[in-house]
Amino acid sequence: MEEIETERVENGSRLPARDTTWIEQLKQNPRRDFIQAIRDNDAARCLVKTAEIHGHFCPGSALGVMASLCGLRRLGGESIPSDGLENLMAIVEINACFADGVQAVSGCTLGNNALVYRDLGRMAVTFAIRGKESGVRVRVHPEFRSHITRAVPEFHPLLEKVIKNREGGPEEETAFKKKAREAAFALIGLPFELLLITESVRPDLPEYAPITESVVCPACGETIMATKVVSDGEKSGLCYMCAGGPYRQVEGRGIVTVSHGK
């Protein structure tokens, strides 16, 4: 058996020597491959990389990919790449598959505070650069479903059965994933103008995310952001969980308030 030449990398693991150059390049720019795909307008490559975080292929994430490619192109070359430091901002209006396409392609995420989530339930995203007066809003054309039906007529019936009604067994689930993949790749093969509507807007951006100090909850001993503890009353200084009060969370329904009782 031919021995593959390896080289040790920083974490102690070994990789084929030919891969170490690629790792070093990604150390300098972790979004290098993604950025090149964006500059090449390679929607297929962007969709594949989006599926790495989304978990599967689907029309929703494909629309997020297309909206992001279109919006970044309209915004101008300086918007590529995103460095995750809140210069390029994305305002997404739905917490569904579409949002993962936006996060993956743009590099604006909840974690780096460059993504703003507005709980409006619309497949739309606004891209803007801090310091610029105008941005671009991209929304999905209401007739997008007709393109899916023409390309993959089996998709919507399977969506209804497997996802909406939670019916069917492993065979139906496998069939759904297959048709969802076909539908996603069919969508990214269409021109932007058939799927998307764009407009120039004056964005309303939040301030840069504050750097918040941490405190330790005296009840549970966990480290908590100082802004996420009870600030007055007999439970002052306690985290929301230990105080037994309500807190907010983002879930399938959007932003909801959850009551937590001890």
Rank of each mutant, 00 (worst) to 15 (best):
G233N: 13
A209H: 13
R18I: 10
V256L: 08
N165H: 13
P191V: 09
I38F: 06
G252I: 13
E193W: 05
G12W: 00
L190P: 08
L110A: 08
R14I: 07
S79F: 01
G237R: 01
A183D: 03
A96N: 14
A67F: 00
F57P: 01
L72I: 12
H141D: 15
P218F: 09
M241V: 14
V162D: 07
E133L: 10
C108K: 06
E7L: 14
G261T: 15
V216M: 12
E213G: 09
C70E: 11
I23K: 13
H56P: 00
K132Y: 09
G233F: 01
V229Q: 04
I91G: 00
F176A: 12
N112P: 07
I129G: 01
G60S: 05
A62L: 04
C58M: 05
S134A: 14
E5D: 03
L205P: 09
S214C: 04
C220P: 06
K228H: 15
M225N: 15
N11L: 03
D232I: 07
S236G: 11
H156S: 05
N113M: 11
V230Y: 05
L75V: 11
A44Y: 14
L159Y: 15
K177C: 14
L88E: 00
P218G: 04
K132Q: 14
F57D: 06
R118D: 05
V229N: 02
G77F: 14
K177D: 12
P142V: 14
V152G: 11
L15C: 02
R130S: 10
S13D: 10
V102A: 00
A243E: 09
L190I: 11
R202N: 00
P30S: 11
A124M: 09
G111T: 04
S134G: 08
V125E: 02
F155D: 03
S61H: 03
G135K: 07
K179F: 01
R74I: 02
E199F: 01
R130V: 05
V102G: 00
I35E: 15
V162S: 04
